[in-house]
């Protein structure tokens, strides 16, 4: 089911959280809302869920063409996963997952046995078989996150909304869970919108990335587009390491080519101030000569650095590919 967000405004007192936001989330896609804190991404997600109301008269939220702006959160059919899981601590895992089914109106409520059946299906789906009688505090962070997901899926939501789903996990678990979520999404194929401030996460996971900043959308596109063709300097700087040249142009560390100073096609010469080799990669910091301020960061292969017999203090040449100028 597609989500259509049409010119949404949201203010908190004098503070503008969302400024005329419009966005299409295609059916079955996995879309990331990416931005620094305060960019409005979580507010937008909460408005889609119905946990927050857009400013009166501002715009509409459509699910599959139907206006849901006035539909309360509990009736929108959204699955919402909270950053800190928000599992009910006084209930078992099974009771947590069954909650949405238990509180349905009598007429629509499943029979007890059917609920039990569904809960064990979901536990299997999120690979937590056999943990139904445990309590949330007995589970690891990654397991709790999957319980939260199972609980959200139990009500067969039309869309899945995830607020910083991996924000509270440590680096290793984050990576595993990220891959798992991608596979999982491909299996169930549910329209999913998730919020993150981690560019790597957004680029690796999403079909569509929406970069937000200061209550506005900066750029929308595939991860490839966003990384290769940033439209603003903010997007450039936010998506990974980048060198800003004095004339306002940008260049990523891996785009700079190392050459000997006397070689042809050298745009800048400089002195190697720091050299760090790890595995097959090398990070080279170069302080440009001729009065340029600031250092340039270059990523090269270990082979090349060894071939050139590079050492700290050497003078070296840098070659830039053709560069574009960006609006700030």
């Amino acid at each position: 089911m597609s989500i259509s967000i049409q010119s949404i405004h949201k203010t908190f007192g004098a503070y503008t959280a969302l400024d005329d936001i419009s966005l299409e989330v295609p059916d079955g896609s996995l879309t990331a809302l990416l931005g620094p804190s305060g960019s409005g991404k979580t507010t937008l997600l909460r408005i889609v869920a119905g946990l927050e109301m857009a400013d009166p008269g501002s715009g509409r939220i459509l699910f599959h063409g139907n206006d849901v702006s006035e539909v309360p959160a509990g009736k929108r059919g959204v699955g919402f996963v909270f950053q800190h899981y928000a599992l009910f601590t006084h209930m078992t895992i099974a009771q947590n997952i069954a909650f949405g089914l238990d509180v349905m109106p009598h007429a629509r409520r499943l029979k007890r046995a059917e609920i039990r059946e569904r809960v064990s299906e979901l536990l299997h789906l999120v690979r937590l078989d056999g943990l139904d009688k445990r309590r949330p505090h007995e589970l690891s962070g990654g397991q709790r996150q999957r319980v939260a997901l199972a609980r959200a899926l139990a009500i067969r939501p039309k869309v899945l909304l995830l607020d910083e789903p991996f924000g509270a996990l440590d680096a290793q678990v984050r990576k595993e869970l990220r891959r798992w979520l991608r596979q999982f999404h491909d299996e169930i194929n549910l329209t999913t919108l998730f919020v993150t401030h981690d560019q790597e996460e957004a680029l690796e996971l999403a079909d569509q990335v929406v970069v937000m900043r200061n209550a506005r959308i900066e750029q929308t596109g595939t991860p490839q587009d966003i990384y290769d063709e940033p439209r603003t300097s903010f997007v450039y700087e936010f998506l990974g390491e980048v060198n800003k040249l004095p004339d306002g142009r940008y260049i990523r560390p891996h785009e700079i080519e190392l050459r000997f100073a006397a070689e042809e096609g050298v745009d800048v010469t400089g002195r190697v101030s720091h050299l760090f080799v790890a595995g097959p990669f090398a990070r080279v910091s170069v302080a440009p000569e001729h009065g340029r301020r600031g250092e340039l960061e270059v990523w090269a292969s270990r082979d090349q650095v060894e071939e050139m017999a590079l050492a700290s203090g050497d003078v070296i040449g840098l070659h830039f590919p053709p560069l574009k100028k960006l609006k700030s």
Partner: peptide, 25 residues
Amino acid sequence: GVEFEEAAATLGAGRLTVFWRVILP
């Protein structure tokens, strides 16, 4: 945290249900 109540609300629970099943416990 208000997120427990929000979680319950997105799962379709009404205000009274949220009180009895989430807040009171």
